[in-house]
Amino acid sequence: MRFTLKKDKSGVVVVGVEGQLIVGNRQELKQKVLDALEEGSRKFVIDFAKTGYIDSSGLGVLVSLSKKIREQSGELRLAGLNADLQTLFELTKLDTLFAITRTAEEALAAF
């Protein structure tokens, strides 16, 4: 399990989530994104292409980050959800809260 942060040439921060996003590691992700926000980044993509599962604490931290980024006039997009994760977002209705694209590349192109 680890998180990777890369900034593309237009300044969008792409966060990769490898393994799982759960109660035990959500604060690490939150802090990394908040640090980037504090340093001036405003556009974020969280890429779940290498993510196995997300629990409700993981979902909660995404909701929290989305609010904090919006408060700074920024934007958060989610990408790379597999079929099970997509279903999780739909049943919790969080798919209505987030801009979700199939791939990180599509998310970057949409900014």
Binding site: S56, V63, L91, L97
Partner: peptide, 10 residues
Amino acid sequence: EREYGRGLFV
């Protein structure tokens, strides 16, 4: 938009 409260539902 609440951070908590989805666990049992999930």
